[in-house]
Simulated scan of single mutants.
Amino acid sequence: MLVAQISDIHASPDSPSLLAFERAIDWLKAFRPDALVLTGDLVDDGWQRGYRQIAESLQALDFPTYLLPGNGDDQSVMRAELAEVGKWAGTSGSMHFQAALNDATLVGVDVTVAGQSHGDIRPHLSWLKSRLADVATPFLLFMHQPPFGIGIEVLDQVGCRNADALLELLNAGGRPPLGILCGHVHRPVSSRVGLIALQTCGSLCPPNPLLLRDQADLAVLDASSFLVHEVRNDRLLSHVVSMQTLARA
């Protein structure tokens, strides 16, 4: 099973990121994954037209799409403009989703905190526990802010809080997720906690610099990118798709 993940478009009237999104969608139309997940920060400053253009692009796909908000999204505008393609668990409140596909289950938890850049999983643990009780297949857990450090201090300060409580819940269930898949940091980063793979998706807006320890703030060479995840024999393989390799159809 193939699941594409796009994150952090940050569409605005003055940025080229919507064009990058359209190029990625053109590529996915030909690639034909089983599903597409968007892990937040679709639009800056509640730009209604941006949400509308994203919705129009997603409506042209013939495979399902699932959406999470990021800390930069206006959730009320996002709900209104993406109502035709958003498959959220409820019509109000947190914008979680769950989808049972052929070979795996996709679970998305909205960990955003109103008015804050960081996320927090604790208010949503009971919802997650109840949903996982009925999951009989391997599953992937999607969030916006990652619940693990990536080694870039300024970004780790605005990650998802209460990660220990999340890992306790996931390990207690007997079937941990194949991966926790996030956005927010504008860089592809991979790690592991026990049996659980941890992965952040690159962004369609300019990537963040690699500010590790006392390294200098060097110019960014990274291309905008997204991910394609493959679930094969109860294993997760995650592939980076660089926007430099995409040709406009």
Rank of each mutant, 00 (worst) to 15 (best):
V3D: 02
V3N: 04
I6Y: 05
D8G: 05
S12P: 03
P16S: 10
A20H: 10
F21M: 00
F21I: 02
F21P: 01
F21Q: 00
I25H: 01
I25W: 04
A30P: 00
A30V: 11
F31Q: 10
F31W: 10
F31C: 05
A35T: 15
A35W: 13
L36P: 05
L36V: 07
V37P: 06
V37E: 08
V37S: 08
V43Q: 04
G46W: 02
Y51E: 02
R52C: 00
Q59D: 11
Y66M: 03
L67M: 07
G70H: 09
A83L: 14
V85G: 04
V85A: 07
V85N: 02
G86L: 07
K87H: 11
S92Q: 05
S94A: 15
S94G: 02
S94K: 12
A104V: 12
V113D: 01
A114Q: 08
Q116K: 11
Q116D: 06
D120K: 09
D120W: 08
H124K: 09
H124R: 11
W127D: 07
A133G: 09
H144F: 08
Q145F: 06
I150F: 09
G151P: 15
I152S: 08
I152D: 04
E153G: 08
E153M: 13
L155E: 06
Q157Y: 09
V158H: 03
R161C: 03
A165K: 02
L167I: 00
L170H: 02
L170M: 01
P177V: 11
P177S: 07
P177K: 04
V185D: 02
V193I: 12
V193E: 15
A197F: 05
L198A: 10
Q199H: 14
C201S: 15
G202H: 11
G202F: 14
S203T: 14
S203P: 14
L204Q: 13
C205L: 04
P206T: 09
L210M: 13
D217P: 06
A219V: 07
A219D: 12
S225G: 08
V228Q: 05
E230C: 08
R232C: 03
N233C: 07
N233E: 12
R235G: 00
L237Q: 02
S238I: 05
V240H: 01
M243K: 00
Q244G: 08
R248K: 11
